[in-house]
Design a protein around this nucleic acid. Sequence first.
DNA 1: ATCTAATCCTTAGAAAGTTGAATCAATTGG
DNA 2: CCAATTGATTCAACTTTCTAAGGATTAGAT
Lengths: 155, 155
Amino acid sequence: MSKQFRVQVVAKAVQELQDATDLIDELAARRLGINRTDLRCLSRLTARGPLTASELAAAAGLTGGAATTAIDRLERADLAGRVRDTADRRRVLVHLTEQGQRAVQEIWGPIAADAQAELLQFSVAELELIETFLRRALHNQAHHADRLREETLGT
Amino acid sequence: MSKQFRVQVVAKAVQELQDATDLIDELAARRLGINRTDLRCLSRLTARGPLTASELAAAAGLTGGAATTAIDRLERADLAGRVRDTADRRRVLVHLTEQGQRAVQEIWGPIAADAQAELLQFSVAELELIETFLRRALHNQAHHADRLREETLGT
DNA sequence: ATCTAATCCTTAGAAAGTTGAATCAATTGG
DNA sequence: CCAATTGATTCAACTTTCTAAGGATTAGAT
């Protein structure tokens, strides 16, 4: 097995991992009876805590209008709730309900737990290598994201 | 730095990599003037060569009807083309046009080249470790995808 | 050979989501 | 205290999706 071949195998595995993640998101959304956009909002709220409607819109890559209806749907599903900010009453803070937190935990908890257990099997030195790999890949992606942005705007 | 901490760092890096990939897809689609669904079709055609309409639908996770209109859009954009199968004239083979191949190459060529160069900097032993990591992660994802599928259907 | 059933793609109509602009309410600064 | 700004929502137009039905082609049976 040549090194060249191993490189290809790794590249393909990265692709497969991304596809698998995509599938999980699809299934998770279906399980909760919501769409992918709403799931993304749920994920952001989980990662970053309560957000205002516009913060959530920015975090999820949505326009204000889309965020409003997404929050409506999450509220109807009892996964998120609105609270008017007492200091600035224009603002609305969106937060996960207890049921929302529970749902997130039920779906992603086991995945995260297994992932953590899996990673703990590696030595510290190995984890460092894996991190290096991921950092470089990330750097590469960011570089090309910039390239695409410039090329597109430049047109 | 504890091992536990390193594990968390790696987990977060995986998440960031997925987000970065998502951003690249978004920018690529915008650059080609198509939507994410059409881009996914383009990607499948690139990876697997010419496909029938129904194969493409399955590969992209679409119904037949949605695939038809997606192919319509790609055809209008001159990125893909239809050819009736001479052996079985019910079937339609969808393939990338020259322009489609060129577009794919311009966008993903540099990314793949850099990724390959990056991977070649690792030793064979290191590549093996990275592959092991990815395989386990993939196995974990597949396992939980099955879990979600069963839980959802079981309801 | 012809008739029937199955297969493949397309079309049509309905449903769902997003966008961008307009609107309403609340806040800030001059 | 009024004008400009900010934050969220609403609304109409557009896009994409799905399901169901239709039309063409093939395969199998009589």
